[in-house]
Simulated assay, not measured.
Amino acid sequence: MFILKRQDVEITGLQHPKTGQQVPILNYQGQTFRLINVFSAQQAEEARAFWRDLTDNRGKACVLLEETDRYSVWGKIRLEQIADDPQGGVAAAPLFTQASLLMLQAVFFDIEDLLGNRQAGSFQKEIAEIFKKWKFPQADTPDAVKNWLEVDPLGGVKMPPWQEHHLNTLLQELHRLGKDYFGNTSFVERAIDILEDMPANERKQFIDWLNQSPLGDLWSTS
C-alpha cells in the first residue's frame, strides 16, 4: 500500500479497554494502522518481502515504515476493531510464546554446552539488549532475562504478554545470533527438535504459523 518515513506518520499508544495494555497505533492521513511485525535495519529485504506478501498476495492494506534503525509493517484497522477484539490484538497465543522460548533456550544451552560459559554469558547479554531495544514486556531486567532462559515454558508458568511482532523479532534475532556464534546454521535443527516436548497439536499449530511467515525460511530444516 505505502512505504513511509518516520516524519510522514504519527505513532501513538492506545490502551486496550479490556486488557489494559498499550497497542501501538500508526496514524497516516486520517487512517490508523496496528503494528504487525518489526525488522532490524539490516533486514530491509526481508521487511519489503513480508510487506509485499501481505499486500500483493493476501490483499491486506499495510504500510511499511522505514526508520534509521528498523523497519516495521503495520496493518490498517479501525480503532473500534481493537476494542471488539477479545484478545486486544495484543498477546500472541501462549503456545507460540512457549515454543519461541523453547527455541531460545535450545540455542542458549547449545552455546553453553559447545562453546562454554563465557560465550553463553555473552549471548545472554545480547538477548537482554534485544529485549530492551524492542521493549519486550516482563523482560527488562537481567533477572527477568535469566528467568526466561532457564524456566520450563511447559511447566505451567504464565507466559509474558508478548505480541506476535515480539516473537517475530525474537526468532529473527535468535537466528542471526546463532549464525554469529556457530558460524553456520547447525543450531536450527536442534532448536526445532526441542519442540517435540510440546503436545503434538500445539507443535503443529506453531510450525504452521512459523512456515506461513518469512521466518519459515530461516528455521527450515529441509
Rank of each mutant, 00 (worst) to 15 (best):
F206I: 03
E112C: 06
P137Y: 11
A200T: 08
L215C: 04
A106Y: 11
N117C: 02
L171D: 06
H166Q: 02
N27S: 13
L4Q: 04
T141R: 10
S222N: 07
L215N: 01
Q15H: 08
F187K: 03
T221S: 02
L101Y: 04
S213F: 11
G75C: 10
R58E: 14
G156P: 12
I192W: 10
L114G: 01
L79R: 11
D8E: 15
W219V: 06
W162I: 01
D193V: 01
D197T: 03
P86K: 10
F136A: 01
V151H: 14
D53E: 13
D84S: 12
Q212V: 03
T55E: 09
A144W: 04
G75F: 00
I77P: 02
D140H: 12
N37D: 09
T141L: 15
A44Y: 00
P160M: 15
R6V: 03
V38E: 00
S40M: 02
E150N: 09
I82Y: 00
K76W: 14
L79H: 10
R34N: 03
A91N: 10
H166P: 01
N57E: 14
M1G: 11
Q205R: 14
Q172R: 08
K18H: 13
D180R: 12
T169C: 13
D110E: 09
L64M: 04
I207D: 12
P24T: 06
W134Q: 10
L114W: 09
N201F: 15
T32W: 07
V73D: 01
L101T: 11
R203D: 12
I82V: 15
T68I: 09
I3T: 12
N57S: 06
I111R: 00
Q22Y: 09
A61V: 05
D152H: 11
V188S: 00
Q138T: 01
W219H: 05
I82P: 00
D208F: 02
H165K: 00
F108A: 10
E46C: 11
A47C: 07
Q22F: 07
L174C: 02
Q29P: 05
K76V: 01
Q15F: 15
I3S: 07
L101W: 01
S220F: 13
L95Y: 10
M103R: 07
F109S: 11
P17K: 05
G116K: 03
W219R: 05
F123R: 00
S100D: 03
F108L: 05
L95W: 10
K76I: 02
N184F: 08
V73T: 08
A41H: 12
K5H: 14
F187W: 10
K125E: 06
S100K: 05
S40W: 00
A93L: 13
S222M: 12
E66C: 08
Q87R: 14
A44W: 01
W209A: 07
E202A: 03
L79K: 13
E202M: 10
C62D: 04
P153A: 14
N168E: 01
L174V: 00
G155L: 13
R70F: 06
F131T: 09
L170D: 01
N201H: 14
W51D: 02
P214L: 15
V38A: 04
L174R: 00
G155T: 06
T185A: 15
Y181H: 04
A47I: 02
K146I: 12
I111D: 00
K204M: 08
L154H: 08
L154R: 03
L114V: 09
A61P: 06
Y28K: 14
E173H: 14
M159E: 10
T55S: 05
W51F: 10
T68Y: 08
F131W: 10
